[in-house]
Amino acid sequence: MELWLDQYATVQSPVHRWEARCRFVGVLSLIIACAAINHIALLPFAVLIVGGYYLAARLPLSFLFTRLRYPGMFLLVVVAVVPFATGTTVFVQAGPLSIYQEGLAQAALIATRSGCILTLSLVLFGTAPFLITVRTMRALGVPALLVDMMLFFYRYLADTAALLTRRQHALRLRGMQTRRLDGRTLPTVAALTGSMLVQSFERSERVYHAMRVRGYGQAVAPPTNPPIHPADWLGLAATLLLAALLVCAALMLG
């Protein structure tokens, strides 16, 4: 199972080389700026900026398209419904249905904003291995308990998924019906879920004991972060400026 967006994390590019904390803050500010866009006049600029960062990160387009597939379905529904449901100025009249100008603008806004944010998320999380990203989040002030939970969760997710698959195989071999809802469906699913909870609970106890033996929970000095070079600061400043410009423009047009 391909879990984290690791497959292009070792590509050589300016974005990959950008110091992790600067990259995190910079790209996140652009994401916020894209979410702030409220006028279609700003969409071309947003697309240009976001496209520029994606190209600079040297991530393949196929990566973007596969990741767009799922949210694309939801967006398609929005784009198909909103032009009919929003606005007062009729743009096209088709029998009893009318397409409104405001609705069209709204649909374009939602679709573009969504695409831009998603593309930037790929730049944010696809340009570093999982562990670096998590360490960066810790360095930027995410609570230690949350970071620890993320690490454990990531470590055991694939295992848990495999556990569910094997259990479902075992159930199917013993004739479990998966396509019909009858009196036994819910008790079986409940026992399946419950037994997986118990198994993971017991496993977590063993994991915790093994960790305690090796000193988990002791106060340790925080890891030292790599130095931030002038070029990293410059990239961050430029990105923050772009984001600020977008937000200001949105405020003025809105």
Binding site: L145, D148, M149, M150, L151, F152, F153, Y156, L157, D159, T160, A161, L163, L164, T178, V189, L192, T193, M196, L197, S200, F201, R203, S204, E205, V207, Y208, M211
Partner: peptide
């Protein structure tokens, strides 16, 4: 913490059951 994380993984995976 390990318990909450492992159980979270179970809930995550259980949401795939239809």
């Amino acid at each position: 913490v390990p318990r909450a994380a492992l159980l979270t993984a179970v809930f995550f995976v259980a949401s795939w059951i239809h």
